[in-house]
Design a protein around this nucleic acid. Structure first.
Lengths: 251, 251
DNA sequence: CTTGACTATGCACGAAATTGCATGAATAAG
DNA sequence: CTTATTCATGCAATTTCGTGCATAGTCAAG
C-alpha cells in the first residue's frame, strides 16, 4: 500500500467517522501504530487534520452535521445500503435515487475503484463530495422541496441522455400486484423514466414498505431486476414477488 | 509495446484504481521498475498525475474538509452573506454560485417572502432544503469534485434557459485591470455564462481575494454591478475598481 | 549496406524515504 | 499520586528513487 494512499484513506476515515483512532487504524492497515502516528503528525502539519491524544479529529471542532445525520440513519438502512453498494462494479454508471436509503448507498460505495454516479438529488451529490473515485453527474431541474430531488421536464430530458447500468430506486411502497408506488405523481414519473433508461433496476425495501402501496404507481414489480430487502424477513412474504434476484442484506 | 501506449495504460490504471504502484505496473508490463518510474516521472512533469513514493496518485490533492473550510473564515463570510442577502427582493430569481461565501448567502436569505434560487451547486441546494419560501432550481451537469459545481455543456445549455435578476458570484480573485479570475477554465466559462444571462452581477470579495489574480479570466471588473466587500478595507484599495456600487458588509 | 544519431530499456550504486522497534517523556484516567 | 497508554525521537533494516552508463533497436543519410 502506498503511503499517500494510506493518508487519503485516513482522511476519508476521518470524514466518515469524525475521528481517527491510531490503534484501530493500525489494525485496519496491518501496520504499526508508529506509522499511523507519523502519518497523522505529518497531515496535522499540513493542516489537514487536528492531532489529538489517541488519534486525530477534524480541524473544525465537530460540527453538528456528522454525528446528527449519521445517528438518524437506522442500522437497517445502513446494511441495505452496504448490500446495494456491493453490486457496483468498476466503470459502471449508477443512478442513485433520492432519499435516505440511497444516501446510505452513497456512503457505502467502494473507494478502491472508479465509477460514475448519476443523481437528481443534491443531497446525495453533496454526500459524494468526499468520495475519492466517483465521478458525479447531477441531474438538474425544479427542486421538489419535500423529497429534495429535481423533477420536471428539464430533469426528464436530461435523464433521457444517459443510460445507466444500475438504478437504485429509493424505498417506496412495494406490493406484489400493485407494483411499486409513491405519493407523488411527478416523482413517480421521473422514477419510471429513470428505470426505463437503466439496464438494471433494484429497489431498496425496508420491512414497513413491503406489501404496501401508495397512490401513484411507478411500475410493476416484474420490471425490477431485484429487490434489496433486510435480513430476517420470512421467505413466505417474499414469495409473491416471484423470481426476482433478491439481495438480502446482512443482519 | 510503444512508450506512449504504455503511458496511456498507466493513466487508465490510475483512473480505474485510483493509484499506480510502480512495482505492480512493472510486473504487468514485464518491464523494469525503472522504466515505469521514468514514465511516471515524465507524466508528472506534464501534470497528468502526481508522483508519490511507490507509484503515482491522481492530481487532486487531499483538501481539508468542506466543513473545515466552512469554519475557517466564517465571521467575515457570514457578514458578506448577510449583506448580499439583503439585496434580494420578493419574486426575484437569484443565481447562487458555488462556494463557501455563497453558502453563507443561502443561510442568510430572507424567510418572509418568496423568490427563486437557481444554483449549480448541490451543496447550496441541500442548504436550502430547510428554507420555507424559496423555490429552488437545480442546474445539472458533470460535477466538479473540487468545487462541487455542475459544469460542462449540459449545465451551460440549462443556464441558457433562464434569465436571473441577480447573480451572486462566489469569491474569486479580483484585480482592477485583470478583472475577475479563477483557477479553472470550465468554472470560469460557466461563471461568465451565468453573468451574461443575469441582469445584475455581484461578486463577494474577502480581503485576500482583493487585488489578486488567478490563471483563468472570468470577465472584466466593469461588467460587474457591484462588489460586496468586508468592512474595514481602506477606501484607497477600492478606488481602482471605479464607480461600482459597493456594498460594504457590516463588521 | 554502413554509419551515426537518437531513443528506449535495463542495470548498478549511492541517496532518500519508509517502516518497525526501543527508549524515555508526556498525557490521560483512576 | 499511581498506573497504563500514548507519544516523540533515534536507529537500523528494507524499499524505493534518481542518475549515470551500457546495450539494443530504429531511422535516415550517405
Amino acid at each position: 500500500m502506498l503511503t499517500s494512499q494510506r493518508k487519503s484513506l485516513l482522511l476519508d476515515m476521518l470524514r466518515r467517522e469524525g475521528q481517527v483512532i491510531a490503534k484501530r487504524a493500525a489494525e485496519e492497515f496491518s501496520l504499526s501504530e508508529d506509522t499511523i502516528r507519523r502519518d497523522l503528525r505529518e497531515m496535522a502539519a499540513e493542516g489537514l487534520l487536528r492531532r489529538v491524544h489517541g488519534g486525530a479529529m477534524p480541524i473544525a471542532p465537530d460540527l453538528p452535521d456528522f454525528s446528527a445525520r449519521r445517528a438518524i440513519s437506522s442500522d437497517v438502512k445502513q446494511s441495505l445500503g452496504a448490500a446495494a453498494a456491493k453490486l457496483v462494479k468498476p466503470g459502471q454508471m449508477i443512478f442513485l435515487d433520492g432519499g435516505t436509503s440511497t444516501a446510505e448507498i452513497a456512503r457505502a460505495l467502494p473507494r478502491d475503484f472508479a465509477f460514475t454516479i448519476v443523481t437528481h438529488s443534491p443531497t446525495i451529490a453533496a454526500e459524494l463530495e468526499q468520495h475519492p473515485t466517483a465521478e458525479v453527474i447531477l441531474i438538474g431541474g425544479r427542486l421538489y422541496k419535500h423529497s429534495m430531488v429535481a423533477v420536471g421536464a428539464v430533469a426528464m430530458s436530461q435523464i433521457s441522455l444517459i443510460r445507466p447500468d444500475i438504478f437504485f430506486l429509493g424505498a417506496t411502497a412495494v406490493h406484489p400486484s400493485q407494483g411499486l408506488s409513491t405519493g407523488d405523481m411527478e416523482e413517480a414519473a421521473i422514477k419510471r423514466h429513470i428505470a426505463s433508461r437503466a439496464a438494471e433496476t433494484f429497489v431498496l425495501v425496508t420491512e414497513e414498505k413491503l406489501d404496501a402501496s401508495s397512490p401513484c404507481t411507478i411500475m410493476p414489480v416484474s420490471d425490477l431486476t431485484g429487490m434489496i430487502v433486510q435480513a430476517g424477513i420470512e421467505e413466505a412474504r417474499l414469495a409473491p414477488y416471484g423470481m426476482l434476484g433478491l439481495n438480502i442484506a446482512e443482519a
